[in-house]
Design a protein around this nucleic acid. Structure first.
Lengths: 129, 129
DNA sequence: CTTATATATCGAGAAATGTCGATACGTTTC
DNA sequence: GAAACGTATCGACATTTCTCGATATATAAG
């Protein structure tokens, strides 16, 4: 994959002095990484969904209850197609749920954990100041 | 800004029947949105930082302690410049902290809240299945 | 002070994402 | 069944983001 790999092994070996220990250390790091990367994709999807001002605003709006697309597009002041697109991303990430009533599509938060996520982020953004 | 605005007011008015009530409803939605969008930017930055497999892997690695760039790049099997770039984004979002020792830069999680964030996301991704 | 090492920054190309008008789909109403 | 309405999807363009080699900076070592 990456031609960097082999060179790095030697580098670290020199760094540590003992090549055997370097090899072990690299193995340990790699196995840590393997475990980590295996189930990261779903979480990335969730964070990607959260990482847009428009979508975050939608989620915060939905903390106030259930809204249909036409209400959400007014609140955000965005065209219908844009609003619908963002909603589908949020739904796809499992952050919101849809409830169809006639020609209306109503959306609500999928779970309280979504609110918790946003609260944690806000807490972190506070800490920085 | 958006030429959509005025049209929508009239649409909703027709929808509700009473134009006065429509106008009120729109005002309510808009003021909700205003409050919401005001402080969303910092949170977006945090979620953006979290929404990349490489960076999420770094954060998970850092749950095991403090690591320098050369260790992280080995764990992730990515070039140094890529690794460094991701680290600067994470640092910029306030998720990790740097500690320089000689020519080494060591990174660690900035706060326990970062772990909490990831746990919440994992919880949500579980719920979907 | 020259060299080696660790990391940061730059710059360019590739890929992903956001935006929005146009159009398609499904439901209701007449 | 035709027209109106709410919503989803498409397609094209603009912007952002990711990646990585090349280069710059800073510290240490000889």
């Amino acid at each position: 994959m990456h031609e960097l790999t082999d060179g790095s092994v030697e580098k670290l070996a020199r760094l540590i002095g003992d090549e055997e220990r370097a090899r072990l250390k690299i193995q340990r790091l790699r196995s840590l990484a393997d475990v980590i990367e295996s189930d990261v994709q779903d979480e990335v999807k969730i964070f990607k969904a959260l990482s847009d001002p428009c979508r975050l605003a939608i989620l915060k709006l939905l903390q106030n209850g259930e809204f249909c697309v036409c209400e959400i597009m007014i609140a955000l002041d965005r065209p219908q197609s844009t609003t619908s697109h963002h909603l589908s991303i949020l739904k796809d990430a499992g952050l919101i749920k849809e409830r169809k009533v006639g020609k209306w599509s109503n959306y609500r938060l999928a779970d309280g954990a979504v609110i918790e996520l946003m609260n944690q982020a806000r807490l972190l953004s506070m800490l920085q100041k």
